[in-house]
Design a protein around this nucleic acid. Sequence first.
DNA 1: TTGTATGCGTTATCAG
DNA 2: CTGATAACGCATACAA
Lengths: 339, 339
Amino acid sequence: MKITIKDVAIEAKVAPSTVSRVINGKDQLAEETKEKVLRAIEKLDYRPNAIARSLVNKKRNMLGVVMPNEAQDFLSHHFFLEAMKGMSAFAQEKKYYITYAFSKDEISEERYVRELCDSSMVDGIFLLRAKDEDKVIEYLKKISFPFVIIGRPQNTEDVLWVDNDNFKATYNLTEKVINKGAKKIAFLGARPHWNVTKDRFNGFKISCDINGLSVDENLVLYGEDFSEEIGYELTEKLLAKKINIQAIITTDDLLAIGVLKKLKELCMKNIIVTGFNNIPLAPYQSPSLTSVDIRARDLGYVATELLINSLEGIDNINNHKIIDCRLIERNSLDFEVKK
Amino acid sequence: MKITIKDVAIEAKVAPSTVSRVINGKDQLAEETKEKVLRAIEKLDYRPNAIARSLVNKKRNMLGVVMPNEAQDFLSHHFFLEAMKGMSAFAQEKKYYITYAFSKDEISEERYVRELCDSSMVDGIFLLRAKDEDKVIEYLKKISFPFVIIGRPQNTEDVLWVDNDNFKATYNLTEKVINKGAKKIAFLGARPHWNVTKDRFNGFKISCDINGLSVDENLVLYGEDFSEEIGYELTEKLLAKKINIQAIITTDDLLAIGVLKKLKELCMKNIIVTGFNNIPLAPYQSPSLTSVDIRARDLGYVATELLINSLEGIDNINNHKIIDCRLIERNSLDFEVKK
DNA sequence: TTGTATGCGTTATCAG
DNA sequence: CTGATAACGCATACAA
């Protein structure tokens, strides 16, 4: 039999409510009774029942996260697991638990979110992607259920979110590439309608402008999706234009790996290639791939901070937070200026 | 205000207990009242409060998993995330939730497990590694808290566990290598005291024996840990022996990658190399690395099945389950017999 | 077949 | 400062 607050009360010869007060560190307690109770708790090895507690407090100390189907792709593992680690770290500090589930598709994702909220299983929810006109977001807003998004949502009003500054990261990266001496720079992306993609392109464009290079529209190509194959194909298209390219900036490591593959096949060596996301594969490429670390763990950590603060009524200075990226320079950044 | 069973009762003009019966599908209900209640539920969009339910049922429908610090290593991401997916999949089928946390170290791991159990936050626990003389295991056994281990524990008595048949997998793999025509086969492992390592070595050894090859003790080397560097160094040591090796079987992809690197440097081509675990890097090696898929997702899935069955009083035919590995043949298995 | 009363383990309110 | 009691939302034994 699990021992309860009553057992402790009997052992300490006090009322259950007194035991409760001791546990919750209420003031106005005689030092003597406090110790008596503490001894009883110790003796019986008593632990409060979290469920009963939640029932009366209407607070679960539990957060929910639904991993989107993209996580099915093993190359996103890195991002998601890192984010989960960050979430776990902050949650533990604040004595929160996190429950997770992988969704098979958008339908099951939505259903699961609703289930979590409606059955009051969780106090708040993480969303790990920011789609436009997201049904889940709409729903959460409607029932004003607390949530935080990792990624910048379409409509940032009244939502908590964390994201990288994709503009800035690409801006700096492009600057770096330009400083290496590259003048003809291509830009390869995928999913052009996504915010991330737009931001990264803008960072590229503005950086070129500021640094006195004009962006050649011919050198900006988009694929349907992020994959090695598409990077490979885009590179083919790019090279078909017979322009003397000196650098290829991509919005994703997978694309970049495809680029490297194509270049390698053609033995084209003096071209800078950069990726994004710094996936575990990046250092293992040859040349090792320069990439941008988006610090997924920090994203998770800070997202949790925003969410829990909001739950506990602690004022978040801002309803969002930007995590700076970190450029990871590797060999694919090497470039030798030809005279 | 959240709507409760009482609101439904009023709406349907019945007693709360009747509503409860409808929800839980009890028999002996007039079809008419059932429908009345169902309509009320529909109309009010009522969802039972999971917490209140748990309190009376003494059942959380929640499982806990502590990710060991090994998961910090980004190359194990694959395994852990896959396992989590499998767990999630089965749990969802049975309407269970899973809460997770990453532990910083063994201390925090133990503390977290105790917390989960003692506060009756979860009905059962997953352990994702099988250490000898594991304090956590001992504790769980002592308080007879339901748990399942992914990995074969030291003492299999009265514990639920799932694992691969590492012996069989290596046995088959070795056979394959031998059938390719290799005669001088090296074995590289790490953590020789681990069960996995022992099992894999035995599979290798017995397979050699059965197939009429004697294992050359000189060709069996162990490193401290699983890493590319160690694979690289072990290969150096191996080659220093001046034996004409035709295949190198390793117990881990990271080791194998180190092996490939060394061989590449020396331009030694006609040597079979095999890894284990089939990490995402494997297909990207050159030559692409032959490896053994340990089917982490299935491990997670089946572990959850064992655990939930045991919780629900469904008899598990066995207290453990073996998941067959799958050999993933890639180019590093190519071998040309010299005449 | 359905309603009433009680309890799950805790906390909050209100007396004392 | 502490004790008794009600309430959180639901399920069940018992009564009707």
